[in-house]
Amino acid sequence: MLNKKISVLLCYVTLLSLPLAYAKTEDPLNVFACEPEWAALATQLGGERLAVYSATSAKQDPHHIQARPSLIAKARNADLLICTGAELEVGWLPILLRKAGNGKIMHGQPGHFSAAEHVQLLEQATRLDRSMGDVHAAGNPHFHLDPYRIRQIALSLSKTLRAIDPAYQTHYQHQLTLFIQRFDSSIAKWEALAKPLQGKKVVVHHDTWIYLEQWLKLNKVATLEAKSGIPPSSTHLSQVLGKVHATTADFIIHTDYQSDRAARWLSEKTNTPVISLSSSVANGEDIFQWFDRLINTLLETTP
C-alpha cells in the first residue's frame, strides 16, 4: 500500500519536474532579427535550438521603424542580434540598443551580427550628399535578394552561432550542411525557371531590387523614385512616362510595403502590368518558399 503511494508520488514528482528539466536543458538561444529574411535564415541554420523573433515583417519598410516598447523588451532578452547593417536600420537600431541595455548584442560583441559586413555591396556611394536622396554610404542594403550573398552570409552566420553557443557546434554544422545542399540545388532550379525573364525590361519603385535584377538578368529601364527614399514627384513621373513610352517596359515592380500610387498611375498610362513583390519572407514562409514565390510571381505576370 505504502509502496504504491510512494510510487504514485514519485510519478507525480517526475511528471512535475519534467517541464522544469526540459526548460533547463533546452532553454533556447534567443535571436533578435531586424528583418524577416534573417529570421528565416537563422531558423534554417539553428532549427529548434533557436527562438527567433523578427522585429519587422515583409510588409514594413525596415528603414522606417521606431524603437517600439515591444522591440526594446525583445532586444533586452536576446542572445544574438542579426541585422542587415549598411545603415538600413540607422534610424532605430542604435536607439534600441542603447535603451535595451543588453551587453551581449552591442556593436562589436560576438552576439551582434551585421550581415553587410560579410558581403560586398553594390552601389557604394562615392559621394555622400543628401541631395541624392537617402544615400547609404556602405552600398545598397537590399542584398538579401541575391541568393549567392545569402549563401555567403549563411556560412558566416553559422560560424557566429557556433562561437556563441559552442555546446551545439555539431548541430549547427549539421544544419549548415543540410541548408547549403538544399539551397544550392534550389538556386540551380530557380535559375532554370527564371530563364524566360532574362533581358525583360522593368520599372521599379525604389532600388530595392538591384540584386535580384542582377541575379536574374533583368533590365531596369527606370525608377519611380527619382531619389532613393523620397516619394516620386510629378515632374519625375512624367519623365519616367516619357521613357517608358519610348523604350516600352515589360512590367513594373512594386515593393508591397511601398505606396503603389505611382506604380498604378504608370501602369494605367502605359498599359504595363504591375507586379507587387514581397521584398522579404512572409509570415509562416521559409526562405525557399519565398524565393519560389518571387520567381513564380514574376513568371506569371511576364507577357
Binding site: H118, V119, Q120, L121, Q124, Y148, E191, W215, K217
Partner: peptide, 29 residues
C-alpha cells in the same frame, strides 16, 4: 573550396555580377 565554388557558379552565370566575396571596404566610410 567554397569560395572557388561560388566563383565558378558566378562565372558560369554572368560576368556582370560583382563578386560578393570581399567584405565592404568603402573609402567613403
Amino acid at each position: 573550396l567554397e569560395t572557388g565554388l561560388i566563383k565558378a557558379q558566378q562565372a558560369a552565370q554572368s560576368t556582370t555580377i560583382i563578386t560578393p566575396l570581399a567584405k565592404s571596404n568603402n573609402p567613403a566610410r
